[in-house]
Write a protein that binds this DNA or RNA. Sequence first.
DNA 1: TTACGATTTTAGAATTATTCTAAAGATGTA
DNA 2: TACATCTTTAGAATAATTCTAAAATCGTAA
Lengths: 171, 171
Amino acid sequence: MPVAQNARELKELLRSRGVRPSYIRLRVFQYLLGTDRHPSAEEIYQGLLQDIPTLSRASVYNALAALVAAQLVRVLTIEKNEMRYDAALREHGHFQCEVCGQVFDFRVTSFQWDGLEGFLVKSKDVYFRGICPQCRKGGEEHGKSRENATSWGTFPFDGGQNNSRNEEAPR
Amino acid sequence: MPVAQNARELKELLRSRGVRPSYIRLRVFQYLLGTDRHPSAEEIYQGLLQDIPTLSRASVYNALAALVAAQLVRVLTIEKNEMRYDAALREHGHFQCEVCGQVFDFRVTSFQWDGLEGFLVKSKDVYFRGICPQCRKGGEEHGKSRENATSWGTFPFDGGQNNSRNEEAPR
DNA sequence: TTACGATTTTAGAATTATTCTAAAGATGTA
DNA sequence: TACATCTTTAGAATAATTCTAAAATCGTAA
């Protein structure tokens, strides 16, 4: 991950959102922009520590809080024990593999709901869980064993899969 | 919340899912069936403690783990710091008010996606965040103040609201 | 450039939800 | 009733996140 990813423009972007473009904030934002791994705060900390030996964990949390408040970064609560972060530049659903833990993006092509009359909806998250193609191939056993430990139940919204014409509406 | 909610049938339900219907498990399950508040483990613990003075937190966690593994209960990761639990008998989306913290159910009427070819999807969660009608009325100020602290960014899937004909597809 | 007030970073302690551990208790079966 | 197994319990352990107070940095005005 290169240090500079049009640092000048990023600075302006932060400033335009009312966030002072401190070095740490820029580096954290760059880190998120340069990966699709939806890292945890700890991963970001470890990743940047090599370049910034004085970095502290609190600084990473501070920087993330500032970026989240400015809506440049979005928090994923898909993981049970820790939060993950995503540069909020594209809209998408998130799939987490329960075997390897990886989080994958996917496209939500249509979405309708009912029963939130009078509510102000400010953000929407879609989290799927299951098994990714690699882990399906690499031994269903391994998958099964963790499946029991982390099963989340099924939630048959009954959308389709493997093609873009999914089902209409559940129940 | 009455102690008995056809205890006999619940016992059978647990047994049929391979879960031994211990007293604690039944009470935890009953507690979840008797509320729509999507309580945390701590809330369940406090709620049952009045009736079961010897109850320990670990027992609540153990019981929840057993019920979740049997797919009778579903875990919500909608909250940043703690998990919430939902008797998994109906399928629905979850809306959390960022002012009062309450979680509301709503109906997902249609849902389509793309880009998970080869993935095995085992569960789907939809989490919305925003402000509930009561908190909108009860002072936009109060809402605003917590809004900045817990803002999650917007995620314009661009579904509709206030009517059942929502938009088609984003971007 | 220098000085000053405000903001940010830092290290480590504090907090807190959850898990672990080992012992005691309960349950089912022979 | 006796034994093996599973469940419950209290408290310690774990780990992600937040808090705290001091040091460093930044932005601006003289």
